[in-house]
């Protein structure tokens, strides 16, 4: 029986086939997945904010893109993945509430997506798929047998990326 491993907000988990990693209810947050298709190991990270250097205090590196992504890369490699083979996918980064004078904090979803891509590229990781933006929530999961990344929504159905 394949295990379903839950990844909370501001947290990440790594694992191997046949497990599935899942994270529920992402709004402006981003679910970043990493996958090595040969070794069939991977990880899922649920970040809330782009940049730890702009936060006043936090003991949790998994909350931020800039600190969380390198941490997950290390752990996936420690599980046997080859860094050069890792494929990244990301989903989330919505703006849930519409305001005419949307402040920076309302648009954090866009900044989250941009920063995640930046950090991944800086670490030499290929980004193979992306489903970001919009004004709706997403539940994401990665099947570590196939590497397929499922994005579920309330009104817009579900898709594999």
């Amino acid at each position: 029986m394949a295990a379903l491993i839950k990844v909370g907000m501001a947290d990440y988990k790594v694992g191997r086939s046949p497990s599935t990693l899942i994270s529920y209810g992402l709004g402006s947050c981003i679910g970043v997945s990493l996958y090595d298709p040969i070794k069939k190991v991977g990880g899922l990270l649920h970040i809330m904010l782009p940049d730890s250097t702009q936060a006043r205090s936090s003991d949790n590196p998994a909350k931020f893109a800039d600190t969380g992504i390198p941490l997950m890369i290390n752990d996936v490699v420690a599980l046997g993945a080859t860094k050069a083979r890792l494929q990244a996918k990301l989903a989330g980064g919505a703006q849930m509430f519409a305001f005419s004078n949307a402040s920076d904090i309302m648009k954090v979803g866009t900044r989250n997506a941009e920063t995640c891509k930046q950090i991944l590229r800086r670490n030499g990781i290929k980004i193979v798929a992306e489903d970001t933006g919009g004004n709706y929530g997403r539940t994401v999961s990665i099947d570590l047998e196939t590497g397929s990344y499922k994005v579920k929504t309330i009104d817009r159905g579900e898709k594999l990326i």
Binding site: G27, S28, C29, M48, A94, M96, I105, R138, I154
Partner: peptide
């Protein structure tokens, strides 16, 4: 109208 986690993001962020 959406998932609680997604909706609460705005405050939690």
């Amino acid at each position: 109208l959406d998932m609680a986690g997604a909706v609460l993001n705005i405050v939690l962020v």
